[in-house]
Amino acid sequence: MPPSIGLVFLRQAVASALGQTGFDDFEVLVVDDCSDDATWSYLQSIECTPADHAQ
């Protein structure tokens, strides 16, 4: 997913992916092509696994 759509939408998309149930193993790939917002900082701050959100 390209973060050029904006950090707000990236946060929503990542939260949605991590909130999915029924999937044990998946990846969310983000290609940050020099965005000028806080995309990189946000991605570095994610320290959870999908199991943390599947409750």
Rank of each mutant, 00 (worst) to 15 (best):
P2L: 06
L10P: 03
L43S: 07
S4V: 03
L29T: 10
D24S: 15
E27W: 07
G22P: 08
L18Q: 04
A54G: 06
D25S: 09
S45Q: 10
I5P: 02
D24H: 06
D32L: 02
G6F: 05
I5F: 07
W40Q: 15
P2D: 14
T21Q: 15
T21V: 12
V31G: 10
A54Y: 00
V28H: 03
A54V: 00
T39G: 09
Q12V: 14
L7R: 00
T21F: 04
L29V: 15
C34Y: 11
G19Q: 03
D36I: 00
F26G: 03
D33F: 06
Q20T: 04
T39F: 01
S45Y: 01
D36H: 02
V14L: 15
V30D: 13
P2Q: 13
D36G: 01
I5A: 10
F26T: 03
V8C: 02
I46T: 03
Y42I: 09
C48P: 00
V30A: 15
T21W: 03
S16W: 11
R11D: 13
L29F: 09
S41I: 09
L10E: 09
A54C: 09
Q55L: 07
L10M: 11
D25E: 08
W40E: 15
T39L: 03
A17N: 01
V14A: 12
F9L: 12
S41W: 02
Q20G: 03
V31N: 10
S45I: 08
F26I: 02
R11C: 08
C34P: 00
Q20Y: 09
W40F: 11
P2K: 12
A38K: 04
Q44E: 15
G22H: 01
P50W: 04
I5C: 10
L7G: 01
S35T: 12
V14G: 12
L7F: 01
F23E: 11
A51M: 09
V31I: 15
D52G: 02
D25L: 05
S35V: 06
A38M: 05
V31K: 05
S41A: 15
W40Y: 12
D33Q: 09
E47S: 13
A17I: 11
D33C: 08
Q55S: 07
I46G: 06
A54H: 04
L43K: 10
L10F: 03
D33T: 11
D24N: 15
D32R: 05
G6E: 01
T49C: 05
A13M: 11
D32Q: 06
V31R: 13
P3T: 03
V8W: 11
D37G: 01
A51H: 08
L29C: 12
Q44N: 13
A13I: 14
D52Y: 03
A38P: 02
F23L: 11
P3C: 07
D33I: 07
A54L: 02
L10W: 01
T39D: 04
Y42C: 08
P50Y: 01
D32Y: 06
E47A: 10
T21R: 12
L29A: 14
C48R: 09
I46W: 08
D32E: 04
D32F: 00
H53W: 13
V8N: 11
L7D: 04
D24W: 05
P50F: 03
L43W: 05
Q12C: 08
L43I: 07
D36V: 00
A38N: 12
T21A: 14
I5W: 09
T21I: 04
